[in-house]
């Protein structure tokens, strides 16, 4: 069982990658999320504590949204995370942008390294 901050970072990462990297297929998105989470686990402790705390707050918001919608598990939970991430991309909040930056930077480095033409292929299609 993952600790709360890690679960929150995982939820946030999955949703953000789905939002920002729609041109990656489901397997590629999952692989990218796994990479980001593995790097978060070994990041320096101040980085981990800061981003973990922010993700936990966002996780609470996602849980509240999911509870209001009647499902805090599975697709209900994922949809709530999606709403949180979508809301943040429209209105970035101070202190939270660092978490987004952390995830997007790592995800980009990994995805561009593994599938350098993925983004272009999606433009062509």
């Amino acid at each position: 069982m993952r600790a709360l901050p890690e679960r929150a970072v995982a939820g946030f990462t999955d949703a953000l990658i789905a939002e920002r990297f729609p041109f990656l297929d489901a397997d590629q998105q999952a692989s990218t999320s796994t990479f980001v989470l593995s790097r978060w686990r070994v990041a320096s402790q101040p980085v981990r504590l800061g981003t973990g705390a922010v993700a936990t707050v966002l996780g609470a918001a996602a849980w509240s949204l999911a509870a209001m919608a009647g499902s805090t598990q599975g697709s209900g939970r994922d949809a709530a995370w999606g709403k949180v991430v979508h809301g943040l991309s429209r209105r970035p909040l101070p202190g939270i942008s660092e978490l987004s930056q952390f995830v997007v930077s790592l995800a980009t480095a990994y995805a561009a390294d593994r599938w350098p033409d993925a983004a272009l292929a999606s433009q062509a299609s």
Binding site: R20, F23, T108, A111, L120
Partner: peptide, 8 residues
């Protein structure tokens, strides 16, 4: 990053 897709 974060504009990788724009300059794919």
């Amino acid at each position: 990053a974060p504009e990788w897709a724009r300059f794919a």
